[in-house]
Amino acid sequence: MTLTESNAFVSMASSADQDYPASNILDSSEKVFWMTTGLYPQEFIITFKEPIEFRHIRFVTSNVKRFVMFTTSNQEPKNFETIFEKTLPNNENNLQITDYTLDRSIDVRHFKCVILAGYDSFSSVHSLKFDAENSRMGKKY
């Protein structure tokens, strides 16, 4: 059981297929996923009941072409700051795994990801994990 599962929840998502809900993003298994149901941009917000500190992100997707990630330490989900932006290669029949380490740890209350473009009408997010440090010893959230 990671902290993510107990402390974090998806507080907003732009697509809602009840069989492939955004809550699947925080499920540690990559077998379950959130489907976007058409048109871009698509976005979701993850809210932490207790603010967390992290440095490392692992983001697993399919058919995503370009995305941006934002965070805020505000109580309310506003005044987001960009932390990371990336264009991914087309990996049609495989998952796209993105690992990213920030310059320093940041305090986060809300995390927002916007999928700006896709390689298909529909893209998917399979998992999103946060780590305190970029090391195996790091505390998992």
């Binding site: 492939y20 077998k31 489907m35 058409g38 399919s62 058919n63 009408s121």
Partner: peptide, 21 residues
């Protein structure tokens, strides 16, 4: 046709999930 493309994509992803783990 649009819905069947959506469902087809889901089936592909579920199959990938079964084969990878």
């Amino acid at each position: 046709e649009f819905v069947s493309r959506y469902r087809k994509r889901i089936r592909t992803l579920e199959k990938m999930g079964r084969e990878t783990y």
